[in-house]
Amino acid sequence: MRDLTPQIAVKLAEAAYEIKDKVGGVYESDALDLLSRDFDFNLSNNVVQGTSGSLMEHIFKHKTGFAVIGTGKKSGDYNGHTVIALRGTANKRDVVTDMHCGLSTSANNLPAHAGFNKTFNSIKPALEGYFTKNSSGPVHCVGHSLGGALAHLTANWLHSKQNGRPISLYTFGAPRVGYAGFADKTSNSLHRVFRCTHSADPIPLVPFWPFVHTEGEYTLNAAPNINAQAHRMAGNSPGYINTASSFKSFAAVNKRSEHWHKEQVRLDYEKRHQASFTSKWAHRLGAALITLLKDTGLLYEVQHMITGSLTFYDKVALLLTKIAHMPGNFAEQQKGMLGHMLVFAGKPGIVITDLSYKFIRWVLSVTLDKVAQVAGSAISLLK
């Protein structure tokens, strides 16, 4: 199966934003025009409408263009292939900035982010209509930002419905969609996964722990400091269109193969000032939490936690309060993790003197909110 090039994939991701609204009664896209050598896009019939994750849009059933489907031309390199490009919602209030998200069952029968699932379910009927009639040949699912999350869910859904059909996933600056089991099942079931990031992009860091990414990360730009500008598609700061288009193939992109969430991290409270507001420390703090839960035998409980009246992190804080009273060195291990979180969140002067539920919940909140604030700014820049 021939892979898309980084340039084609990022152009498709760009085009998904351009078909949000009709102009003069028709959909238009300059990005799709540039891809016309390889693909046919019937904008009269193959634009999929959906409803965004915001509550008001669902209440009023406000539908806009969410995805565009193309077919490979017989004369091109992708004869017999199908491409589907999906966009995210350019709204700061969107679910990606809600760190206290719920879960719902996804197409691969594992829990995933409820907000992403809700939006995906609004476009699924149209996808079913198309792919029931077009059930052969490789499929490439593409998206930037929240569109990457929807592409992820679309690829999983297609695999569950049309098992054996080669399906590849291409995302740019996409958030995390599910827990470790969900990510691993995606990595093992799809033909190829090209998860592209800028190291400074805050959106791939959310939702926070224990949501994780699929295996493998194609790093298009390695600047370490978290910066809302790094999430943008256009421009040179660094701009996904700019960075992706500089590579002729994904084989030329630096690929990080390790699983961050499988790293064993135990942190010393006295060394907490080594932490910084970087993607490296966001990953390390997530790994530290998972390590602590694994060491105390509580990881299984978290991985199978479905939220109800309490938010997810209310329940995590309850478990951490329980750990604080366990025999052994777990309280010190937890103190080290929380101390590093405070420095990461820009509160280095706070000294930990107790491990009460109220304090632990507050530390989790300020840490999550620090990332959420930058993630919200990144989403706003998409407008």
Rank of each mutant, 00 (worst) to 15 (best):
D3M: 06
D3K: 03
T5N: 11
T5Y: 07
P6E: 05
P6Q: 09
Q7R: 11
Q7I: 07
Q7M: 09
I8P: 08
I8A: 07
I8W: 11
A9G: 09
A9T: 05
A9E: 12
V10N: 08
V10A: 04
V10F: 06
V10S: 04
K11P: 00
K11C: 01
K11E: 03
K11Y: 12
K11I: 00
L12N: 02
L12F: 12
L12W: 14
L12A: 05
A13V: 04
A13R: 12
E14Q: 13
A15N: 04
A16N: 11
A16H: 11
A16S: 15
Y17W: 13
Y17F: 15
E18D: 05
I19P: 02
I19R: 11
I19K: 04
D21G: 01
D21T: 07
D21E: 14
K22E: 14
V23G: 00
V23K: 13
V23Y: 06
G24Q: 07
G25H: 09
V26T: 09
E28S: 10
S29Q: 11
S29C: 06
S29H: 12
S29F: 08
D30P: 02
L32V: 02
D33I: 07
D33L: 08
D33E: 10
D33N: 12
D33Q: 09
D33R: 13
L34R: 15
L35R: 04
L35F: 10
L35S: 07
S36K: 15
S36Q: 14
R37Y: 13
D38Y: 13
F39L: 01
F39P: 02
F39C: 05
D40I: 08
D40G: 01
D40Q: 04
F41L: 01
N42W: 10
L43E: 05
S44C: 03
N45P: 00
N45V: 03
N45H: 11
N45T: 08
N46G: 02
N46P: 03
V47Q: 07
V47L: 09
V47Y: 04
V48H: 05
V48L: 10
G50Y: 14
G50A: 09
G50W: 14
G50R: 14
T51C: 14
T51G: 03
S52A: 10
S52I: 08
G53H: 06
G53D: 14
S54M: 12
L55N: 04
L55M: 06
M56V: 08
M56A: 08
E57C: 05
H58A: 04
H58E: 07
H58T: 01
I59L: 14
I59Y: 15
I59N: 03
F60R: 10
F60P: 02
F60L: 13
F60W: 08
K61N: 13
